[in-house]
Design a protein around this nucleic acid. Structure first.
Lengths: 389, 389
DNA sequence: ATAACTTTGTCCAGTCGATAAACTAAGTTC
DNA sequence: GAACTTAGTTTATCGACTGGACAAAGTTAT
């Protein structure tokens, strides 16, 4: 059944509008909110007093007068609640406690070696529990838990497939909800990274953002029209398995010539071994490049070129404003970016390359956790508005 | 400035909801509308009487009783206005006069050989004028003109580049608005085709639709989340220039290994010539295939395979519900579809190929014109609602 | 045939939320 | 210190939806 539009909806939307305005322009007065939103002063006053009662915002003394009574400034009450936002990696867990403005209050980072669910889950509970204890007392407490995972996640938060963890059909969201009884969001790591950069990082000004998470494999998160795009059942963004060489290398996904076979960290290390580097890691390769080792430089150059091929495709497909390259490959930034940019400069259609900005992630290792925080915070504000109107 | 939510908005939205319900479920009674939308019976009554006064809907006698008073059935007044919807091809113009339900009332199809704007524009005016004369008298008259063009169109309706017409920076929308003084929409041919299939054709049930228009080149229209996706400045969907062979054939777009170099009609004919067919056309090749000519069959097979490569990529990128193949290649449907489907079956990741339907266009040569009609009709209903509330 | 029940559609009083305008509060400027 | 400005609250009014009463027009059971 379709949504029916009545006064309650109007109120909810206006309240959300006021709250968003405060979030974005704080500190701000009631009068200015009325101006910016076009709402009546009285309406703003009444909505603001409700938000104050709900402890979602606070008054913070008076501002400068501009020739009349001094305004009372309003702030988002960022400590009304906290999120626990987690990035589940292949052999580590990065978890942060954030306030409602996404600011990190505390952080845990632990490593693990066994990837079975039975081994990982207790570790996950452990870091979450630690952060829960550290959270300051607040009106809303922990408003939600978000987990970014390196795999395909269904719309109901089930990890359908996480090859690098060896997981299949793990109902992670359900497990966490059952255990903690608070809202949980499980999302693909690249999707979360994209959203993190959009909300708190390099993509704040843009509405069309492509975030390429390049590490062992390649995952891509798409922000289209300002929102995360998920596809029919949440399986989109498998751009790592876009063919860039028809009938090229065999991929374990079943396809051939997949982008990630040529442009991922795995591909880099494989090429390095072929080139004679023994026992190689990305870090060591970067060191070699810093010593001007021509082989290392050439390897990075080739990698950048291949990354550029995929990004050129992305430009042609989406015509985005911003392409952000994140995850572990970012540490080699200075050795791959030139080749990436050159590839694009020489091969992308003029229209599409004109306005695009290509850069590495601004949040670095926090892209995914911040994205999960953003999801959780957004959901909290939406729910709160619905329940208390 | 952001949208403020007041009673007017509520009314406008509810009125649009009632109108949409009538459009989709006609014939329908006031009581049923109230049930379906969740609106109050009184509210529906009052909105319906406004719509009747505006001639947008009509009453059409009474329906069957279900044990009480017989309902008065409401219909969309599809002849309250008409659209002129045009597909501008490389050497022909297909123009149709449609009513507000997208039904074709009249049709013109003319050919031309000179592609200069100065030669084409008069022809365009000519067909539009003919259709204008043929339009029945109606309360709203011709509510708009829509033109689908084979090229890149900016958000303000300027044809930035149409290689096959040799056009650059043609302000087509402005020209038509100046000439006719009614609303005009100019859109890329593939985008329009996608929307046409979504609204009136093969994509009606789906919310994520990819429409590949394959003729001389390849254009792709994307319906994401039920809406046409355009990218930052309207340049998206250049999927024809997605690289499927790194450092493959040179494309005039500046890139290498572009999909359309391998999977378009142009590519097919080029291969046919190499195979020894002289003076070949797609039609002749189909005839040959009908005679079981092994060379012709193999050419179509190869083409289908290459089309399948691109579509596999599309599945991985978008995870759509429906992939529709349209435009002139469609006539070879039975000789290319098997290879396309085989490629996908063998190479797409399981998740993504699971629920997708792959088929050829249902509207055939009308995909683009119907899409333009849908755009125009949608805009008309939106504007009408705004102005008369 | 008639009474009882059903369904459709209209009407009207009540409610809720936004608005405009009056008003209070608290400064600044000349 | 009088006149002017700006911020924020209060109040009367308006507009739109809602629920219920009611009229209109059927069907069903006896």
């Amino acid at each position: 059944m379709s949504q029916t539009w009545n006064q309650q909806v109007v109120k909810k939307e206006n309240k959300a509008l006021v709250l968003t305005t405060i979030k974005e322009k704080a500190p701000i007065s009631r009068a200015t909110i009325a101006q910016l939103t076009g709402l009546n002063k009285g309406t703003v006053s009444s909505l603001v007093s409700e938000l104050l009662a709900e402890k979602l915002i606070t008054e913070s003394g008076t501002g400068k007068s501009s020739g009349g009574r001094r305004p009372v400034m309003l702030l988002l009450n960022e400590v009304a609640g906290f999120t626990i936002s987690v990035e589940l990696g292949v052999n580590n867990i990065l978890a942060v406690l954030t306030n409602l403005r996404g600011q990190i209050v505390s952080e845990k980072n632990i490593h693990f070696s066994e990837q079975n669910l039975d081994d990982v889950l207790p570790k996950l509970y452990q870091v979450i529990d630690q952060l829960r204890v550290e959270a300051p007392i607040s009106p809303y407490g922990i408003v939600g838990i978000g987990v970014g995972v390196p795999g395909v996640v269904s719309t109901i938060g089930e990890v359908l497939l996480a090859p690098n963890l060896g997981w299949k059909k793990v109902p992670l969201k359900q497990l966490l909800v059952d255990h903690y009884q608070i809202p949980v969001i499980v999302e693909n790591e690249a999707n979360a990274g994209a959203y993190g950069e959009k909300v708190y990082g390099a993509g704040q000004e843009a509405n069309e953002v492509v975030y390429a998470s390049i590490s062992t494999g390649i995952g891509v998160g798409l922000i289209l029209d300002g929102k995360l795009y998920k596809g029919l059942k949440g399986f989109s963004g498998e751009l790592g398995h876009m063919t860039i060489e028809k009938d090229g290398l065999d991929c374990q996904c079943g396809n051939k010539g997949c982008w990630e076979l040529y442009a991922s960290e795995n591909a880099l290390l494989k090429q390095a071994k072929l080139a004679g580097f023994a026992d190689i890691t990305t870090e060591k390769l970067i060191e070699a490049a810093e010593q001007q080792d021509p082989q290392a430089l050439s390897l990075f150059d080739k990698l950048g070129d291949y990354i550029g091929v995929g990004i050129t495709n992305i430009l042609h497909i989406f015509n985005p404003e911003q392409v952000i390259i994140g995850n572990s490959i970012q540490q080699a930034e200075r050795y791959i970016l030139p080749a990436i940019k050159q590839r694009i400069e020489q091969h992308a259609i003029g229209f599409n390359k004109g306005d695009v900005h290509i850069q590495t992630s601004q949040l670095h290792k926090y892209s995914t956790t911040m994205g999960m925080a953003a999801f959780t915070i957004e959901e909290f504000f939406q729910k709160t508005n619905i329940h208390l109107n």
